[in-house]
């Protein structure tokens, strides 16, 4: 049995297949479908989650590697049903359209602030470039992150 700690809750998982990625474990075995699969090749960023406070690509991480790590997904970002400031800003700035990349964008953006890389629009653009948005909401994503960064960043 493997124990995955996701959003503060321990889950005992029978990982009968060593090939199961963290992404598929979250989605298929824990029912946490907020984390999205856009390429399964580490190229699009839609599957970004937080592991021990750092953004990682859950499609390139085996679930079995995550024992003892603190995983936070989009479902664990808000507190008691209240949106995280980054989630609020994404809604206000219309920083998404279809919404499929949004979980990854938001997880990446929250980590970006923690990394201290949201000091300028150029930095935000550069360090958010691992998260593709095919609907093309980039200017609004930058605006949302800029606003939260300017307000002090919110909690991670």
């Amino acid at each position: 049995m493997t124990t995955l700690t996701v959003n503060g809750v321990d889950h005992r998982l029978d990982l009968d297949d060593a090939r199961v990625t963290l992404l598929d474990a979250l989605r298929d075995r824990l029912g946490l479908t907020g984390t999205k699969k856009g390429c399964d090749q580490g190229a699009c960023g839609a599957c970004t989650v937080m592991a021990d406070g750092k953004r990682i690509l859950s499609c390139l991480t085996l679930a079995a590697q995550c024992e003892g790590r603190e995983i936070i997904t989009i479902e664990g970002l808000g507190v008691d049903g209240v949106l995280h400031p980054m989630q609020e800003a994404f809604v206000r700035h219309d920083a998404f359209q279809c919404g499929y990349c949004t979980s990854g964008q938001i997880m990446s953006a929250v980590c970006l602030l923690a990394e201290g890389r949201a000091g300028s629009d150029a930095d935000i653009r550069e360090f958010m470039s691992g998260n593709l948005c095919r609907c093309g909401a980039y200017p609004n994503i930058v605006a949302a992150i800029r606003e939260v960064a300017g307000a002090g960043g919110g909690h991670a």
Partner: peptide, 20 residues
Amino acid sequence: GVDRVDGPQKVTGAARYPND
């Protein structure tokens, strides 16, 4: 410029796409 009515669903991961 009204915010999207489905915005909260999409930013919390609650919006369910066909593969969800």
